[in-house]
């Protein structure tokens, strides 16, 4: 039976590879001049005084798509929370304190604030320099877990009340929706960037609603990643199965 499966895989793989190569030969050359969508996206972004065109595409021209992507993120984290909760036949024991070498502990506790500030900087300058809500949120969430790497899981649990992060996740999603509805109330389309003045180019307040949507996504991604890692850490470190079962 195994032999047959490998044969099927080989034939299918070879066919797929041949089709892919044939497709690659017909694609326009790498580094070509024609980018119709790109040029229009850059013009639309500059018209709305947003320096980072990618953030403008993400949060202004295709904000509805980012709404869909954020709900995927929210649903996936919700799924993980449901799947990784403590089952009936499991008990949760205290995580043993772990002793960590002195320089490593000092480094972790020193870099934690720097990484948090960098994460917030990346979110805040989302519509100016490279960066945005997604990247900044993940950096801030990962920075928080330096406490687990530098100290032990007990220290992280004391600092990170899980309820706060779950509510901030929900609040951020609602903030994104409210911002969208606000432009509907103001008489234009859902999530349209016609609510706020566009401000002067390349300043923190430029881009109309882009920085606000950026901040909402940053908060949502950061709290979602913290909740996600919290449940994975609980499973890996704390939750034990009853030996009898």
């Amino acid at each position: 039976m195994n032999r047959l499966r490998l044969w099927l895989l080989a034939v299918g793989g070879a066919g797929l590879a041949a089709l892919l190569v044939a497709a690659c030969l017909d694609l326009p050359g790498f580094g070509g001049r024609r980018h119709p969508y790109g040029d229009r996206a850059v013009q639309a972004s500059l018209a709305r005084h947003t320096a980072n065109t990618i953030s403008s595409v993400n949060f202004d021209q295709r904000a509805y798509d980012t709404l869909g992507e954020m709900s995927i993120l929210f649903a996936a984290v919700l799924g993980c929370v449901v799947l990784l909760r403590q089952a009936r036949d499991e008990h949760r024991d205290r995580p043993e304190p772990a002793e960590v070498a002195r320089p490593v502990r000092r480094y972790a506790l020193l870099v934690l604030p720097v990484a948090l500030v960098t994460g917030l900087y990346v979110v805040a300058h989302g519509q100016l320099s490279p960066g945005g809500g997604f990247q900044g949120g993940v950096v801030a969430a990962t920075a928080l877990h330096l406490l687990y790497l530098g100290a032990d899981y007990g220290a992280l649990e004391r600092v990170r009340p899980l309820g706060v992060y779950e509510t901030s996740d929900a609040v951020a999603v609602c903030a994104y929706l409210v911002l969208g509805l606000a432009s509907v109330l103001a008489g234009t389309a859902f999530l349209a960037n016609t609510l706020l003045p566009y401000g002067t180019f390349n300043t923190l307040s430029s881009g109309g609603t882009v920085p606000l949507l950026n901040a909402a996504i940053g908060m949502e991604v950061a709290s979602a990643v913290v909740v996600l890692l919290a449940h994975f850490l609980d499973q890996a470190v704390e939750i034990e199965e009853e030996q009898g079962s």
């Binding site: 850059v42 320096a51 980072n52 065109t53 990618i54 300058h125 100016l128 490279p130 180019f201 390349n202």
Partner: peptide
């Protein structure tokens, strides 16, 4: 890159 924080558009 189409990011105009440090170059003129």
């Amino acid at each position: 890159a189409p990011v105009f924080s440090d170059i003129a558009p």
